[in-house]
Every structure is written in structure tokens, then in C-alpha cells.
Amino acid sequence: MAKDLKEIKDINEIKDLGWDELIPGAALFSFTEPVEDVVEVPMDERPYAATNSHEWQVGDWRVEKPVYNRDLCIDCQFCWVFCPDMSILSRDKKMIGVIYEHCKGCGICVEVCPTNPKSLLMFPEHTDNNEALAMWPKKEEKK
């Protein structure tokens, strides 16, 4: 039966539906209610609709994940500006962490991180983050 997208409250209601089970030509809503000025509302406070990709996840694309080491970070925001997938969470000019639901594991954030040793490093997806932090490499001597 065709579903009206306006009625959808949870992505699980539409995640596995075939294309022919959804209403053709229906509007895809970003939010469940009008938001006056989106730019003033941080992501974690927005009333996202189930039809906004923000509510979905692509984390299972990864084979490696970036792990963040707060102790070394200088909050330069290079990782924030060059992350293609809005997956670096920054608040009040501080880097806070990686949004693993949206991170595709491209590794750009690690490449652009300027600290020595780096404050972000790629680890196999199954690695526990605390274990990753425990085996963080030491400072590399300049040759």
C-alpha cells in the first residue's frame, strides 16, 4: 500500500519499502515542522523528518574509522572544513568528535590534521576506541 510521507514518524517505517510502495511525486520534507531560520539552529536541535538523510546512516560503508584524540588536538578545524560528510562535530570553535553514523571513513580528516602525532588516526572498524587511544603513536622526529 502506498504510504503518505507526511505521516511517517520513523525511518523504520520506510527503510525497507519498495519504490512502488511510496507515493509518487510526494514532497520530501526536511523537517517535521516549519523551521524559521535553519542556519540559527544547530543540528542536534533540529526537528528532522524521517525523510531527511540526517536521520539515516552510512557508517556501515567503512572498513576503517577515524579515532579522535582530544589530548593532542589544537582545535584548528581543518578536519571540520574538509570533511565531505558533515561528520566532524564542532561547537564553540572546539572539535568535539566524529559523527560515526555519517562518517564514510574517507580518511581526509586524518590527512589534513596538522599535529604531531596526529589527533585523528584511522583504525580498523572493529577496534575499540579506548584501545586505539592506548596504542596511539609517539611524536615523530623530523628527518
Binding site: M43, W61, P84, D85, M86, G105, G107
Partner: peptide, 16 residues
């Protein structure tokens, strides 16, 4: 970095 993105994650563009 204080900007609140109006373009969302979990789109299907390639990694990188």
C-alpha cells in the same frame, strides 16, 4: 566552524 550546515550527512556521494 561556527556555521550550522544546511547540507546533510548520509547522502550517497562517494567517500572523499
Amino acid at each position: 566552524s561556527l556555521s550550522n550546515d544546511r547540507f546533510e550527512g548520509a547522502n550517497l556521494m562517494c567517500p572523499g
